[in-house]
Structures are given as structure tokens and as C-alpha cells.
């Protein structure tokens, strides 16, 4: 062996990848050479840091990813986990629970068939639905918050039907 171990030798030594004879040679050399022993300690410390970094930054498999894999592999399973996750947001869950509760009340008070009897009401313009859709988009990051006031989307569309 040359006066000191090469960095490559030390990397292989730390990784346990030297052949038995070479491994023993490095081991014996370090017992007498503080320079190489320090270099080895430093190399070992670096490997430990990387290993610990790997452990510390380990992530759980996201449930939505596992579900996405299943869906992509077997496309007939279309149940979206995202939808279910979204359901538990307070601002969605609370009104939805309220809706379910009032629906349950409705079922108790009404015969099963009475809800099927519909009442005819004057039509609501498509523009009202388009407006409402735009209004609801207010929390979307890139929604056009400044667009579609009533007079823009509804009234004038009816006046100028040839325009989109």
C-alpha cells in the first residue's frame, strides 16, 4: 500500500466492498496511520449523514397515490379518493351534513312518492347558472374574479344571440 489510503479505497472500505485481503490491509494500515483514520472517520460520517438524511426525509406513501395506481391499473375502479378527502373539509362537510339531515327530515315527513310530484315553475335562464358558476369560483386561484357581472353575461347574450 502507498503511504496513505486513497479516497476511493476508503469509500469502498466504508461500503464493505473491498475484497477480503484489501479490506484487512486498510484495517491494519489505519491502526497506525492517524491521517487515514481521520479520513476514514470523515468518510464514515458522510455516509452516516446521507443515511440519516434518507431516514429523516422518508415519506409515507400518499393514500391518494396508491389509489391513483389502482385506478390507473384497473380503470373500471373510478372511485376518487380526492372527492372523499374533499368531502371532509369543514366548509363542505358542514353544509353537506346539513343537507343530509334536512333530507332525512324530508323523508320522515313525506311519503316516498310525494317528492316525485314536481311543481312546474317558470324557467330559469341559463345565464343565471353561468353567473352562479362564476361566482362560486371566487376561491380558485386563477379564476377571472373580475368577469361575468349580470349585465355582461345574461342580458346582452340575449340581445345578441349570434355572439358567443
Amino acid at each position: 500500500m502507498t503511504p496513505h489510503c486513497s479516497p476511493e479505497q476508503l469509500v469502498d472500505y466504508v461500503n464493505g466492498e473491498l475484497a477480503a485481503a484489501a479490506d484487512a490491509e486498510v484495517y491494519l494500515h489505519m491502526a497506525d496511520c492517524s491521517f487515514c483514520h481521520d479520513a476514514y472517520s470523515s468518510e464514515l460520517s458522510l455516509r452516516e449523514s446521507l443515511h440519516n438524511f434518507g431516514k429523516a426525509t422518508e415519506r409515507e406513501l400518499p393514500a391518494s397515490l396508491a389509489d391513483a395506481i389502482r385506478q390507473a391499473a384497473t380503470p373500471q375502479r373510478r372511485v376518487s379518493m380526492l372527492n372523499w378527502q374533499s368531502f371532509w373539509r369543514p366548509r363542505i362537510a358542514l353544509p353537506a351534513l346539513g343537507g343530509v339531515a334536512s333530507l332525512a327530515l324530508g323523508v320522515l315527513l313525506l311519503s316516498p312518492h310525494s317528492s316525485g310530484v314536481s311543481t312546474s315553475i317558470a324557467q330559469i335562464s341559463a345565464a343565471a347558472f353561468l353567473d352562479r358558476h362564476t361566482e362560486a369560483m371566487v376561491t380558485m386561484p386563477l379564476a377571472e374574479h373580475l368577469s361575468a357581472p349580470t349585465f355582461e353575461s345574461a342580458a346582452t347574450l340575449q340581445e345578441t344571440p349570434d355572439e358567443e
Partner: peptide, 28 residues
């Protein structure tokens, strides 16, 4: 192996979205 694969993919790509894509493609 889902977790290990996702972690491996994450370390290669450095971001969650690409790691997801990579993991999903690999499992497919």
C-alpha cells in the same frame, strides 16, 4: 414496496408530483 418506491422516486426527482408520476408509471 409502494413506500420504498415512492421514496426512491422522490429522491431522484426532488419533488412530490414527479415522484408520484414516476411511482405510478412504474407500478403500471
Amino acid at each position: 414496496y409502494g413506500k420504498a418506491t415512492y421514496n426512491f422516486a422522490y429522491r431522484l426527482t426532488g419533488n412530490d408530483a414527479d415522484a408520484r408520476d414516476l411511482t405510478q408509471d412504474a407500478f403500471i
